[in-house]
């Protein structure tokens, strides 16, 4: 059992605040992804959980034990580093065995575990090599094997796939998901790649400016962003945003009356590009660029002077210069407070 509880963890570097009192609970065996752009504090938070960085305030609990005063080696964690940190002076075998040797396990047990994890990661033929003789992908596998060999209750991963090329990343992503699900560890995984986050996570914690904006299941984060930033950060292309005005009969967006929330002063209307359909009554959109992407069309338009993108059926007949009327699908429009960026329920 290794539930991770983060209570009010803060971190300042001089005058710069990297984390503002962050709270997060990761359930036993849950896979949580910390997602955000660089500088949002996600790696700092991970390093605080690992014990490689000390928090300026707050508490970290792992498996019911408060650990923020303990050195990393006493926290019962394993970690995969962004640059792998596979020791260059040790063979692959010794790299995987490193943590086990530190625990003074009997040699037979060390060999058993190294061979088992090496097999799991498909690197059993590389055990005698040094890291300088490995490719990036192989080094990555060694780094994961080294963590798995510890049979840890918690694995922390800091952008483990970011140094791989696109194809390898895709392959490793799927493999990691399977292996980690089977190993039944609690995993915290840091990435700036939203697709990685969506595909791997049980829950995504989206971070910005040292805050966790939303921590929820991937589809929830995608469908119901708790903040404008979340909607803009997740999704490719991201959510469309248009300013809304309170007219005589209700909200108006680009001159079109739209059913919106009761409350709120200054709001923004938002809709995902794939949630738009051409309709008789819709937002007037001047088509600027049409990109046929195979399964669908990506149409970039101008709506009342704002950039706006729609993903339409590939057989839609539309050309540059056309005027489209685009309407959001039922229940898919979202509203955000212009001042705070928080989502406003309809």
């Amino acid at each position: 059992m290794a539930e991770i509880v983060i209570k009010g963890v803060a971190k300042t570097f001089g005058a710069f605040t990297a984390l503002h009192s962050v709270d997060l609970t990761v359930a036993d065996r849950e896979f949580v992804v910390l997602l955000g752009a660089s500088g949002c504090g996600k790696t700092t938070l991970l390093r605080i959980i690992a014990g490689l960085e000390s928090a300026s305030g707050g508490e970290v609990w792992i498996g019911g034990r408060r650990v923020d005063h303990l050195p990393p080696r006493q926290r019962g964690i394993a970690m995969v580093f962004q640059n792998y940190a596979v020791f260059p002076h040790l063979t692959v075998f010794e790299n995987i065995a490193f943590g086990l040797r530190m625990q003074n396990l009997p040699m037979a047990e060390i060999t058993r575990r190294v061979e088992r994890t090496a097999e799991l990661m498909h690197i059993e033929q590389l055990l005698k090599r040094y890291s300088g003789q490995l490719s990036g992908g192989q080094r990555q596998r060694v780094a994961v094997a080294r963590a798995l060999a510890m049979e840890p209750s918690v694995i922390l991963m800091d952008e483990p796939l970011s140094n791989l090329d696109a194809l390898l990343r895709l392959e490793m992503r799927a493999e990691l998901k399977g292996i980690l699900a089977e190993s039944q560890t609690t995993t915290i995984y840091v990435t700036h790649d939203q697709v990685e986050a969506m595909s791997l996570a049980d829950r995504i914690a989206v971070m910005q400016g040292g805050h966790i904006l939303q921590a929820a299941e991937p589809i929830e984060v995608y469908r119901n962003p708790a903040a404008r930033f979340v909607g803009a950060f997740i999704g490719n292309p991201p959510m469309n945003f248009l300013p809304a005005n309170r007219g005589a009969g209700g909200w108006e967006v680009a001159g079109l009356p739209v059913l919106g929330p009761e409350s709120g002063e200054a709001l923004e209307f938002a809709v995902r590009p794939e949630d738009l359909r051409p309709a008789a009554k819709g937002l007037p959109a001047h088509v600027k660029i049409v990109e046929p992407l195979g399964p669908h069309l990506l149409v970039t338009c101008d709506v009342a002077g704002h950039g706006f993108r729609a993903i339409l059926e590939s057989d839609t007949s539309v050309r540059t210069g056309d005027l489209l009327h685009l309407a959001p699908l039922e229940g898919r429009a979202r509203w955000f407070d212009l001042a705070t960026g928080h989502s406003v329920p309809v």
Binding site: A50, G51, L52, P71, P72, R73, I77, A78, M79, F81, Q82, N83, A85, F87, P88, F98, G99, M102, Q103, R146, M150
Partner: peptide, 10 residues
Amino acid sequence: EYGEAAEVFG
């Protein structure tokens, strides 16, 4: 990172 990895791994 090497020192940190060693630290994490005990």
